[in-house]
Design a protein around this nucleic acid. Structure first.
Lengths: 125, 125
DNA sequence: ATCCTTGTGTCAACCATTAGACACAAACTA
DNA sequence: TAGTTTGTGTCTAATGGTTGACACAAGGAT
């Protein structure tokens, strides 16, 4: 599996932001490790059907966050450690779980309902 | 609890879309039932700190989806049944759960990791 | 009937995002 | 070294969202 990056044209969220989030998650989750190379701007832009500047912006913002490092001619790679020290992986999943549960509860679902729904997706022992 | 509608200014997602999603979820979840009245355009716009047209767009799109009905002078209310027939509530939660699990898996998390993370948020048995 | 409330429509202006093209600099490659 | 790759920067044009203001129409309240 090389890379799964997609854009949803019907989503009003700006493409550069959709891309930024996906890459940030992939890096934080560890699916993309330090030193791993990302697709060149023009290639990814062509694949996704967007302008070069759009991909460049996603890369640039991630670089400012310390997740990526870019060099002319050298391409763009995942930054060495630093920003994603340790437990970043666990924290990411924990945040996702907390967000999901909080949203469900705020919509009036009971814990039991939530557990039942989850039981349809994974083996809750 | 009257209504909890918030906007995140730092989120590039357009405000009208943030609002639209929150209202759609509240209605589908049944927290807002048929006939329930929504805040007047000007009041909600004032509370959220956005222009009237922004709230109007969210209301308009939800009306086109059949979730709301608006009448001049009469306000905007949740549409009577129709679009949210039955099981809409269960389907909403099911979709949320499926989405969460799929996203976690695509980030390389194992089912066991996911279950552990969820266990910190709710009483899994 | 009169007044208030509320949704609807229009308008001009501003800002953000994107597209598409081009040039340039630095790193890699043969 | 020479040529290619790749990120960076600039520019124009187009699109879309937001603001703020205003007017208007229709339902509700007194």
């Amino acid at each position: 599996m090389t890379l799964v990056l997609t854009l949803q044209p019907d989503d009003p969220t700006p493409p550069y932001e959709q891309l930024r989030r996906q890459l940030a998650d992939l890096i934080t989750a560890g699916l993309l490790g330090p030193g791993d190379r990302l697709p060149p701007l023009r290639q990814l832009a062509g694949d996704l059907g967007v302008a070069v500047g759009t991909v460049a912006r996603a890369y640039r913002e991630l670089e400012q966050e310390g997740l990526l490092t870019s060099r002319r001619g050298g391409g763009t790679r995942v930054a060495a450690g630093g920003q994603v020290p340790a437990g970043g992986r666990r924290q990411l999943l924990g945040g996702m779980a907390a967000e999901f549960v909080a949203r469900a509860r705020s919509l009036g679902f009971t814990d039991e309902e939530i557990i039942v729904a989850l039981g349809r997706q994974l083996p809750l022992s």
